[in-house]
Design a protein around this nucleic acid. Structure first.
Lengths: 331, 331
DNA sequence: GTGAAAGCGCTAACAA
DNA sequence: TTGTTAGCGCTTTCAC
């Protein structure tokens, strides 16, 4: 196999000229069209390989073909949940010949709008996105991109596909188990009602309380921004007065923050306080003998997201994946 | 602001026709060219915004302009080190108007080759890659993509830029500190010599031993694949005979595996065994009162990588970032 | 079975 | 200041 030197870019014309035929024949040969003499086709294929021909995606895109680009708009990928999601999506995209483009939003509407715009410039064929809490006023023109919303949903002009996590049952289950084991002062630390997902989780917690015939202690319910610090600080607040005997978290970062706060206070789990985290980063298995948590079906969510992205049907679909209560030793 | 209905794609011609001018004038106006009457320019800009015009990256690419696409070829992004790296790179790319495209290789040459090929199709302007251990025979044609190799380097036909981690000093430092605190049976668990990075770390460990005037115990040096399981199993092997009094890890996943193995054996760190991990995932801070570890300058590496990618100079450069010994309580 | 022409969206180069 | 032409790489359509 020869190697062209600092040559110009190899196109079908290069090959055509090289072989003394029309570039059209080369095109047909390369795209496996029927009407090409086997002999010609083989010569083309061979020469293409020799010259290191690579088809130009730009040219295809300009002709109107869908690109292989799939946008992934996520708040971040340092959080293990999103990292694993992006990891899974990437693998599945590769298998389907799709190319995932990452754009981090940090949950900011402006960053989201920027990302969407860039994806349109690149003619991305679809975007998988966790919608930022509040959209910029002028809801971005999505062009003809297929959209799959993740986790949260935004009421949209045009309906889009979505993959949501159904964690209500798992949360209620957690409350009921805690209650069954004799806990009566069950606290909740989660995201504020600002996010739809935050509202839903709190509602599930309350439903669990009521199903367990437990009274609601307003001071045991802490909500705020979905951040590590919020969870961390909430612990201090919770422990400053009459402390709870159990705690359920309703947010990824919040859960980490709360857990660390508890560790810092040297509380022994579950003796002094039963703990149920949210999300299942790998280290939960190794901390405090294993942290009981509401585990999210990352892989299934990624599977659904990519399936919806690759789906050809024009009608938006919604898929739901159930979270589970992963029992370990802290509750 | 009006909103076009199910209209055709908006191009400069759409705007031109709409305004009764030439599409060339529109082009000039939109790209801020000088020779346009202010009045005309404003009209164009306004109409473009109204119609939701988005410039076609495909058309630009076809004209030979560099695309905004930057490839990121990484083994995975579920490992926190790579996840944080990808996170940082993404942010920095956004700031510079670049679009990072992810392709996971799982350290497999074939996956790497596939990724590179796809990036060429898309005319990516550059690629940041952790080279897979062994290249496929036909070293892939990189076209005119700028290449930045990460962590590992592969001897290449054409030299490329690179960002490497200099962890030798940190590793030697770890050995010396351990020795100074009275440890004499210091074990090492790391990647096999298959990877250049593996070889370098082991060499650094040995250099440390020799600098500390400590003999080398071959049975205390465990090398193998850079996996969680390897680290985990190495612990079992190490503890089965005369155990070490200290352990230094030489790999991200290996370190996690070893740490978990130690935890499972209920060894109290550092009393029964001093532990120095490799890499600094967030939970190291919270496990066993804080895990002493060789911390990698993720953010700096990302900074360098993006700087090299955006660098216009034609001569490849190598940047080195020093790892540090993060002292916490396990050593 | 093969080729010539046209056009996707854009801009450099030239013309007016 | 504005317009016309041509061409980037590819495939569809229509000729041969």
């Amino acid at each position: 196999v020869e190697r062209p030197e600092v040559t110009r870019k190899v196109t079908i014309k290069t090959i055509a000229d090289d072989l003394g035929i029309s570039h059209m024949t080369v095109s047909r040969a390369l795209s496996g069209h029927a009407n090409v003499r086997a002999e010609t086709r083989d010569a083309v294929l061979l020469r293409a390989r020799e010259l290191g021909y690579v088809k130009s995606a730009a040219a295809s895109a300009m002709r109107g073909d869908k690109t292989s680009i799939i946008g992934m708009l996520l708040p971040n990928i340092s959080n293990e949940f999103y990292a694993r999601f992006a990891n899974d999506v990437s693998i599945r995209c590769s298998q389907r010949g799709l190319s995932p483009l990452i754009h981090l939003t940090n949950d900011e509407p402006q960053a989201e709008a920027d990302g969407l715009r860039r994806l349109q410039e690149l003619q991305a064929s679809a975007v998988i996105m966790v919608p930022a809490p509040r959209s910029s006023d002028d809801d971005t023109n999505l062009g003809d991109m297929r959209v799959v919303q993740l986790i949260r949903r935004r009421p949209e002009a045009r309906p889009t596909s979505a993959v949501v996590i159904d964690d209500a049952l798992a949360i209620q289950d957690a409350v009921l188990r805690l209650a069954a084991s004799g806990k009566s002062r069950i606290a909740y630390v989660g995201a504020s009602g600002f996010l739809s997902s935050g509202r839903a989780r709190l509602a599930a917690f309350r439903a669990g309380l009521s199903a367990a015939h437990l009274p609601e202690h307003p001071d045991l319910i802490q909500t705020g921004p979905a951040s590590f610090d919020m969870g961390h600080d909430a612990i201090a607040r919770l422990l400053s007065t009459e402390p709870p005997d159990a705690l359920i978290c309703g947010g990824l970062e919040i859960s980490n923050g709360a857990l660390v706060g508890l560790l810092e206070h040297n509380l022994s789990l579950p003796e002094e306080l039963a703990f149920v985290g949210y999300g299942d980063p790998s280290f939960y298995r190794w901390i405090s003998g294993g942290v009981t948590t509401i585990s999210l079906p990352v892989s299934g969510i990624a599977e659904d997201a990519v399936a919806l992205v690759a789906d050809e049907s024009p009608t938006p679909q919604t898929r739901s994946r159930a979270a589970g209560l992963k029992l370990r030793s802290t509750a």
